[in-house]
Design a binder for these strands. Structure first.
Length: 577
DNA sequence: CCCGGCATCATCGTTTGGTA
DNA sequence: TACCAAACGATGATGCCGGG
């Protein structure tokens, strides 16, 4: 990371950012967007740490896609800098742009009408779109390779003399366009000789165990030239200043580096109430699929919270533009905004369900299964390397991008049987992250770790993790410490200790020592979970026995029918997610 | 002490009706 | 027509209690 340098360019025609990994110039993490003191950030610390993708300070990109790309790109860097390593990065974020290639396979369609804003284009994919992904990957691979070379070439020839100017000025669109590439506009330029020492340091107000705040707050590669003391936010007016609809503008505190097109900010400003503006900005800042599996505010039912940095940026923007409202962190009107956004999200889910129900071939993301288990079973990044050596670092870095990938996976379109096998296959491909001390050699998909970290209490985290650490058949005949006289086997003590270490690390304020009060609560919660599981299994199996004749007499589809599905749904979400 | 059954609570999804 | 909020049922988490 420290050896690397980015140039963030934007393909305006397609309204999507592209990150060019340019691995020559040294650029310290600290030269990235600093994080300023911010009270909101404090509240977001916990989630920051969950969302953070590493300890090295990942720049966050102003828009979701760019953010995803950044995460992805960092993830890949551990294994080299070849353009191939950027493949997924491109694919992941360029789904929208895969249209020419993918459309040939008739696997994708757009649904811009889903949102009122023409700029927030939402896409859904046909069930087998993943099967076409490889085709798209290969085509995009070549395309991006070309792009990468071109831009790198341009960067070498043009950027160096212009190091202290925003590329918006220095790298003209026409220049890029003239070489047959999409019009490209760089957000900012990276100065390879940034005076790190003088760079503002990330605020302690957004700490995190692994120092993720820097990444989370650098939504866009926005490298200030500290030595020149140029505040880019001055060059690019913040949302509270004059807004240029053509360029991306900061939402809220520029330090958060959350950006949207100025036109979107204008739209938000024009809303009559902050809740409407909030909803608008949420739509702009988050892809639909992220919204479908997320929730604003406190996480619940396995749903992730929306990126707290972006949410905080939205709140700050609202507070600035709606000064008469109570938009403090716990303000009445901010709560109204949260409610409103969540209502919108629910509406999106129901709409998605309805549309999928009326058109079975359409995707079914947003279904309960998706949202309840967004980060575990749908571990779909086929391009993530399996280099476990780097996983411990890369996995966190990738969290954001992979979770979006998970949301976008479209796996739920597959029949369950196929999906299960696919999930297993893909889960095996997902980078793992050690749980507890690495020497215990207990590894879980980092998406599982990610969700576990998102729990508000260690018991909830333990409940969640235990279902991913042991197979169902092991769980049902065990409890944490065993009870041999009752025929209950103890769960693998190594795994249990790894779990406890993980909890201890992530919930430092809790007493999670071997005999700690909170650890005992976790043990109780785990045993309770197992108990419930046993109970559910018993019910489900008896239900199956009763329904077996009916199932046999009907077609296979009916075996997955809603009735039984409801009965067994818990098992799915509990055990196979 | 642990299990299984049950009740309760919080949250979610869906439906429905009102409003701009 | 889109948006919003309330009502209602479904579901998961949690706690309590009696029994082994």
């Amino acid at each position: 990371m420290s050896e690397e340098d980015y140039v963030c360019v934007k393909a305006e025609e397609e309204d999507e950012a592209v990150i060019i990994d340019h691995g020559d110039n040294g650029l310290s993490t600290q030269s990235f967007m600093p994080v300023q003191q911010n009270s909101e950030a404090n509240s977001a610390v916990h989630h920051m740490s969950q969302l953070a993708c590493g300890s090295e300070g990942l720049p966050m990109l102003a828009d979701q896609t760019a953010s995803q790309m950044s995460h992805s790109s960092r993830m890949q860097r551990g294994n080299g800098h070849s353009p191939e390593n950027m493949d997924f990065l491109v694919l992941h974020n360029k789904r929208k742009r895969l249209c020419p290639a993918v459309a040939e396979h008739n696997v994708m369609r757009t649904r811009e009408e889903e949102f009122e804003d023409s700029d927030s284009v939402i896409y859904e994919y046909e069930p087998d779109y993943e099967c076409a992904m490889y085709d798209a990957i290969q085509k995009l691979d070549k395309k991006f390779d070309l792009l990468h070379r071109k831009v790198s070439e341009m960067q070498h020839t043009r950027i160096k003399p212009l190091l202290f100017k925003p590329l918006e000025e220095s790298l003209s669109i026409s220049q890029v366009g003239s070489i047959g590439l999409p019009n490209i506009r760089s957000q900012h330029i990276v100065e390879s000789t940034v005076n790190v020492a003088s760079s503002p340091v990330a605020s302690p107000s957004i700490p995190a165990p692994s120092e993720p705040s820097q990444e989370n707050n650098a939504v866009e590669l926005n490298c200030r030239n500290a030595s020149e003391d140029v505040n880019i936010s001055e060059e690019l007016p913040s949302s509270s200043d004059l807004i240029n609809p053509s360029f991306e503008e900061f939402v809220g505190d520029p330090a958060r580096n959350v950006k949207v097109l100025g036109s979107q900010l204008v739209k938000a400003q024009q809303k009559t109430k902050p809740k409407f503006a909030a909803r608008h900005l949420v739509r702009v800042l988050f892809p639909k699929k992220t919204l479908l599996c997320s929730i604003m505010g406190a996480s619940a039912r396995g749903r992730r919270t929306l990126d707290p940095n972006k949410i905080a940026a939205i709140r700050e923007f609202l507070a600035t533009n709606f000064p008469t409202y109570d938009l403090s962190e716990h303000g009445k009107d901010w709560k109204t905004c949260i409610t409103n956004v969540n209502s919108m999200i629910r509406c999106l889910r129901s709409e998605t369900k309805r549309s999928s129900a009326s058109s079975p071939k359409e995707t079914t993301e947003g279904k309960e299964e998706v949202s309840d288990a967004p980060d575990t079973s749908h571990c779909v990044d086929l391009n993530y390397n399996e280099n476990s050596e780097d996983n411990s670092k890369s996995s966190q870095k990738m969290t954001s991008s992979i979770t979006d990938t998970l949301q976008n996976s479209g796996l739920d379109n597959f029949p369950e049987a196929f999906q299960t096998s696919l999930v297993r296959k893909k889960q095996s491909l997902e980078p793992m992250e050690p749980l507890g001390s690495p020497w215990r050699n207990i590894q879980l998909p980092f998406s599982v770790i990610y969700v576990a970290k998102g729990k508000t209490r260690p018991e909830l985290s333990a409940r969640y993790l235990i279902r991913h650490m042991f197979p169902e058949d092991v769980l049902v005949k065990s409890n944490v410490y065993g009870s041999l006289d009752r025929g209950m086997s103890p769960l693998d003590s190594n795994k249990i200790n790894a779990l406890r270490e993980f909890l201890k690390e992530n919930f430092p304020s809790f007493d999670l020592n071997e005999s700690g009060y909170d650890w005992k609560a976790c043990v109780g919660a785990i045993n309770s979970t197992i108990r419930s599981l046993r109970h559910e299994l018993k019910k489900a199996s008896s239900g199956m026995r009763q329904r077996a004749p009916a199932v046999r007499s009907s077609n296979a589809e009916s075996s997955r029918g809603s009735h039984y599905r409801k009965a067994s749904g818990k098992q799915h979400s509990h055990l196979s997610d």
